[in-house]
């Protein structure tokens, strides 16, 4: 088959699996429910954060610290939903919908199918993040405007960051091939690690030295820092990262994304192979 044809076929697969993902998230029998899930849910979780922050600081929302936490949490939604979403896709397709085996034996590349499903998660999460940021600007005085954003940096950082997230999702998919629905734990722990070590709820510099070192090898740390810099919010709050220039951060993000992607692909294909040899592609909890 010609290269062009192969690429077209894989894009076709991604398109329809993204469509499926979109249907699954948005087709909650009515648009009202959809709005509740994509708007009310992120705003509610953001409000919880705001309240926690207000209790700790005694009611201050206009500081850089607050902006730091607000923006980091908003963008962390990507990490959270992609990581969890992918595992759910595998477990639900396999055990609940019982479609995984049929998708697996189709001529479509399962890898591309997973990328498509991830893309639909990303699109929906983007919507939620937009709503959260808009809420922050309107009601919490987050100083963000279209002109204050460094667009080239923002777009570049988003593309690289999302690539590393997709890779991460695929690595988790590879692991999820081998785990049963209720075994859980893996992705929760990974999301938890990122939450604590990547500068989401608090700046990296307040962590112990060993944890700062660990934090500095995680691409998500650089990604969130660069997003903050691009948006001009909470910049300089994280003294552990402030000394690293934007250029250096970008290089580190790129390199770690490449390394991550290679590892993630290997995990995916290894998981796939193991699942096929152990007979787990159509596993139900009965076995």
């Amino acid at each position: 088959m010609a290269m062009k044809e192969i690429i077209q076929k894989n894009i076709q697969t991604m398109k329809w699996s993204a469509w499926l993902g979109w249907q699954m998230e948005s087709n909650w029998t009515n648009p009202f429910k959809f709005l509740v899930y994509t708007i009310a849910r992120p705003i509610a979780s953001t409000l919880i954060l705001v309240v926690m922050y207000l209790i700790i600081t005694g009611g201050i929302t206009y500081t850089d610290q607050f902006h730091y936490i607000y923006v980091s949490n908003a963008f962390f939604m990507y990490v959270f939903w992609v990581l969890f979403g992918i595992t759910w896709v595998i477990h639900d397709d396999r055990e609940h919908f019982q479609t995984m085996k049929y998708i697996y034996i189709s001529p479509s590349n399962y890898f591309s199918y997973m990328i498509g499903r991830t893309l639909s998660k990303i699109i929906i999460t983007t919507f939620s993040i937009f709503i959260t940021l808009a809420f922050g600007v309107l009601f919490l005085g987050i100083p963000l405007s279209l002109t204050s954003v460094n667009w080239p940096l923002f777009l570049g950082v988003m593309i690289i960051g999302l690539l590393s997230l997709i890779s991460f999702g695929l690595a988790l998919a590879g692991v999820s091939f081998l785990t049963a629905k209720h075994s859980g734990g893996v992705n929760e722990s990974i999301a938890g690690i990122f939450y604590l070590f990547c500068g989401v709820v608090f700046p990296v510099h307040i962590l112990p030295t060993w944890a700062i070192a660990f934090s500095k090898i995680l691409p998500i740390t650089y990604w969130l820092e660069l997003v903050r810099r691009a948006l001009g919010l909470g910049v300089g709050v994280d003294t552990a990262l402030a000394s690293i220039s934007t250029e250096t951060s970008l290089i580190i993000l790129c390199v770690s994304t490449i390394i991550f992607t290679i590892i993630a692909f290997s995990i995916f294909f290894l998981g796939d192979r193991l699942a096929r040899s152990k007979g787990l592609i159509d596993m139900t909890t009965a076995y």
């Binding site: 076929k9 076709q12 697969t13 398109k15 329809w16 699996s17 469509w19 499926l20 249907q23 699954m24 087709n27 909650w28 029998t29 919908f97 019982q98 479609t99 049929y102 998708i103 189709s106 001529p107 479509s108 199918y113």
Partner: peptide, 23 residues
């Protein structure tokens, strides 16, 4: 003897999805 398929999609949508996965 199984109940496979995406319950949220219609019969046609389910079939359509697979037709597209087969190109």
């Amino acid at each position: 003897g199984e109940t496979s398929g995406y319950g949220l999609l219609t019969v046609r949508e389910n079939l359509w999805l697979f037709s597209q996965l087969y190109g």
